[in-house]
């Protein structure tokens, strides 16, 4: 049943006000942050007397910032690759199969996404020491990958559950063995889901502070670097770094959203 809630005029105006208040609440800090990055003064705050692009040129010529940015990107890409492969694999194993203990398996699989970041970070740190894993890139990638697997699995499972059984049967019927049927039919069908999940993982990893902080070695990731810079005082350079990161992540997110939607539409017949 699809019953629309009827609103009277007063309620409508009230809801519109709440909505716009929310939008302002979210965007005003972002806009302030962006604006301050163009201020020609070391002190953040109003009034702004003159504008400059110096902070940005500073960022793009600051070797440490650029290096850290690259470091974060590499961590994001490698951890995402691992999450996507492992997550998809688990999804394929779990979906459409009934076996004893499936619910428990499923629950354990989701758990890493639910454990609070600080707790899992400390746990990883202790575990890494026990295993003799040095803090640094490998440890961060490992922690990010484990944390992100559940998101991949859930998204891929949802997509997989909509693949008609007859698709695989038709492929087998026409001469494909199970592996070939997976590669030629299942995998292409999963592409939009895998892509969407990948972008989500990339952003989660790029954005992560707690795990990167606890498991990092001497080289900081971008969020850790920003945190370190903050301790020596707020400077518009940080605003510039943050704005660049914001624009990039937003662009990737929007592109992925559009791509997934188009791919979803194409596969509907």
């Amino acid at each position: 049943m699809n019953r629309r809630v009827e609103l009277n005029r007063g309620n409508r105006i009230f809801l519109a006000c709440v909505y716009w208040a929310f939008v302002l609440y979210v965007f005003v800090p972002l806009i302030l942050m962006i604006v301050m990055g163009f201020k020609d003064s070391k002190f953040i705050g109003f009034p702004i007397r003159s504008w400059t692009l110096d902070w940005y040129t500073g960022v793009f010529s600051d070797a440490e910032v650029l290096y850290t940015f690259g470091y974060s990107v590499v961590i994001a890409i490698l951890s995402t690759l691992i999450s996507v492969i492992v997550g998809t694999w688990i999804a394929v194993l779990l979906e459409g199969r009934k076996f004893w203990g499936r619910a428990v398996t499923f629950g354990l699989m989701v758990l890493p996404a639910l454990v609070p970041g600080i707790i899992s970070a400390i746990a990883f740190r202790i575990y890494a020491r026990m295993l003799g894993i040095e803090p640094g890139m490998g440890a961060i990638i490992w922690a990010h990958a484990v944390h992100n697997v559940p998101f991949v699995t859930l998204v891929v499972m949802a997509r997989l559950s909509t693949l008609p059984k007859s698709q695989i049967e038709a492929a087998r019927d026409l001469g494909a063995d199970p592996l070939m049927a997976f590669m030629r039919i299942t995998l292409p069908y999963l592409v939009p889901a895998i892509l969407g999940a990948s972008v989500f993982c990339l952003l989660l990893s790029f954005d992560d502070f707690v795990r990167s902080f606890f498991l990092g070695g001497y080289e900081p990731t971008l969020p850790v670097l920003i945190f370190a810079m903050l301790r020596s005082g707020m400077s518009p350079e940080i605003n510039a770094i943050a704005t660049v990161a914001l624009v990039l992540t937003a662009a990737i997110g929007i592109w992925a959203e559009r791509f997934t939607r188009r791919a979803n539409k194409e596969s509907q017949t």
């Binding site: 008609p164 007859s166 698709q167 049967e169 038709a170 492929a171 087998r172 019927d173 026409l174 001469g175 494909a176 063995d177 030629r184 039919i185 292409p188 069908y189 194409e266 596969s267 509907q268 017949t269």
Partner: peptide, 28 residues
């Protein structure tokens, strides 16, 4: 298994592969 049998099936929902063209479907 089905892939070893010299038998083919027309499915009730046709089960055409949506990401392949007609030509690719037929030559699969």
């Amino acid at each position: 298994p089905p892939e070893r049998r010299h038998v083919n099936m027309v499915f009730q929902d046709y089960a055409l592969f949506p990401h392949m063209t007609v030509q690719q479907n037929i030559s699969f």
